[in-house]
Simulated scan of single mutants.
Amino acid sequence: MRAEILDKFGKRVRDERLQRGLSQEELAEKAELHRTYIGMIERGEKNITLINIQKIAKALGITVDELLRDIS
C-alpha cells in the first residue's frame, strides 16, 4: 500500500513540471535522473531520497522548501 505522502509529492512534482512546460524527459535530463524514475515519482510509486528531491527542485528552479510545501 502506497503512502498518501508519496501521491501528494508526486502530484506536486507533476504540477510544478507542467507549470514550466517541461516533459518528464526534459525534467529528468535537467535533474540527471531517468525519465521512467520521474514517472514513478509522479505516480507515487517511488519513495524518493532527499538527494533526488534536491535534484528535482533545482531542475525546476525552486527550493526544496517550495517543492515540499503543502504535501504533509
Rank of each mutant, 00 (worst) to 15 (best):
M1G: 15
A3K: 14
A3R: 12
I5N: 01
I5R: 08
I5Q: 08
L6C: 06
D7S: 10
D7I: 09
D7R: 11
K8G: 05
F9T: 03
G10S: 10
G10N: 05
K11D: 11
K11M: 10
R12G: 00
R12Q: 15
V13F: 01
V13Y: 04
V13I: 12
R14T: 09
R14S: 12
D15T: 12
E16A: 15
R17S: 06
R17Y: 02
L18N: 11
Q19Y: 00
Q19H: 10
Q19K: 15
Q19P: 07
R20K: 15
R20M: 10
G21R: 09
G21K: 13
L22Y: 12
L22C: 11
S23P: 03
S23M: 14
S23W: 08
Q24T: 06
Q24V: 08
Q24W: 08
L27T: 06
L27Y: 08
L27M: 05
A28I: 12
A28P: 03
A28D: 04
A31P: 01
E32I: 01
E32A: 12
E32W: 02
E32T: 13
L33E: 10
H34Q: 15
H34C: 02
H34E: 14
R35N: 04
R35A: 11
Y37D: 09
Y37W: 14
Y37L: 02
Y37V: 05
I38L: 07
I38W: 04
M40N: 13
M40A: 13
M40W: 10
M40F: 13
I41A: 00
I41P: 00
I41W: 01
E42T: 10
R43F: 03
G44I: 06
E45A: 14
N47A: 12
I48H: 05
I48D: 03
I48P: 06
I51E: 14
I51V: 15
I51D: 15
I51Y: 08
I51M: 06
N52V: 05
N52C: 01
I53L: 09
I53E: 00
Q54V: 06
K55A: 14
I56F: 04
A57S: 11
A57M: 05
K58P: 00
K58T: 14
K58W: 01
A59I: 10
A59V: 06
A59N: 11
I62D: 00
I62E: 01
T63A: 04
T63P: 03
T63H: 02
D65K: 14
L67K: 03
L67M: 10
R69C: 00
R69P: 01
R69A: 14
D70T: 01
D70F: 01
D70Y: 04
I71H: 00
S72P: 08
S72K: 08
